[in-house]
Nucleic acid binder design. Structure first.
Lengths: 194, 194
DNA sequence: CTCCAACTGGAACAATCGTTTCAATTTAAG
DNA sequence: CTTAAATTGAAACGATTGTTCCAGTTGGAG
């Protein structure tokens, strides 16, 4: 047999996520990847085929982590209204700690590529649908327990909550301060409350 | 004296806006500009200095048009709640007619560049502030007439409305259908209603 | 020790990037 | 008609793009 793989593909992918997340697909050059991943140009190409493939794998990894966390939160939620609040609190905390103004990798990709790259656009759409579905389940529970507003369907409320999450992440990318993000979250939360 | 300017700089800028809006700064090449503007490479450079300057002028033109329209709507508003509804209706109409999935030039730029180009980031921040201010005035009027909720300050509500406008434009860029956009707008409107 | 694959370093690829330059042409004003 | 500025076409710039290739080196399994 032969030599073992020296680098941890998974850790490498994390670095790629970081780069693409911060500077986007077009903004990240092959040289940026060589510098940022810390492995040789050749190794990048024979491990990940090409830049676009690496980008797709990075986005996929990010989305699995993100949707995974969301599904976990929803599954464990015994107090849906409190869970919604926690989701926003976590988001705001992340955002104000995000000094590099990365925002959300999925939102950034949606804006940069979804319009002219069908395959990547579909990844974004599928992710959005997963999150919307998870939020719908969460809000349904809250409606059944009388905690949340029943003036709209759970799905409608889920789309609204998802929209406000998106908006907060866009605002974070422009460096909006905590107060602005808090305002958005507060009104959004009260809108879905009974 | 000498020859007159042959092309209409303003009409040319509109074409540049269109290009940058659709494909972003990094996604639009000098060649795209030559093809899209329909004038010579040399003419582009001696009229607009360089690509980045042309981009800034394009963004500036877009923002003047956008903020101008918003200020006009707010100034003429005698029924603030109805005006908010009209803003969302117009937005949704624009979005579903936006078959090229352009979204909003300002939002796209915020996501692509605001994080790593300070000067352009400031243009985005200033624009956002103008829109927020205009919306604040509008919502104040509605609060005074008892039409709109006074559970939050007008500025807080304005930030919330602005956030939902942003979210709708991001969603539009991924090709979201009218129903999804409508859901967001409806809950947002009811959230600011008394 | 040998073998073979993983990996490295670096050169090189053609293509495209943004930009500059220049001679030729067009057009309006004097 | 002359003059001068506006505009064009095309070539060329060096830099960087994404990608490939290959000759070495490394290191674990047989």
């Amino acid at each position: 047999m032969a030599r073992k793989k020296e680098f941890d593909e998974d850790a490498l992918l994390d670095k790629a996520v970081e780069l693409f997340w911060r500077k986007g697909y077009n903004g990240t050059s092959a040289q940026d990847l060589v510098d940022g991943l810390g492995i040789n140009r050749s190794s990048i190409y024979n491990t990940y085929t090409d830049k676009r493939t690496l980008f797709k794998k990075s986005l996929e990894k990010y989305q699995k982590a993100q949707t995974g966390a969301m599904l976990k939160v929803v599954a464990q939620a015994d107090d849906p209204k409190q869970t919604v609040k926690q989701i926003f609190n976590g988001l705001i905390k992340e955002s104000i700690e995000d000094t590099l103004l990365k925002g959300c990798f999925m939102v950034n990709t949606a804006v940069e590529l979804a319009g002219h790259d069908k395959e990547i656009g579909d990844m974004v759409i599928n992710n959005n649908q997963s999150v919307e579905d998870a939020l719908t389940k969460l809000l349904e529970k809250g409606q059944q327990s009388g905690q949340l507003s029943t003036k709209s369907t759970a799905r409608t409320l889920a789309r609204f909550i998802f929209a406000n999450i998106t908006a907060i992440r866009v605002a974070a990318r422009t460096g909006a301060d905590e107060k602005k993000l808090r305002d958005i979250a507060d009104v959004a939360i009260s809108a879905v409350s009974g």
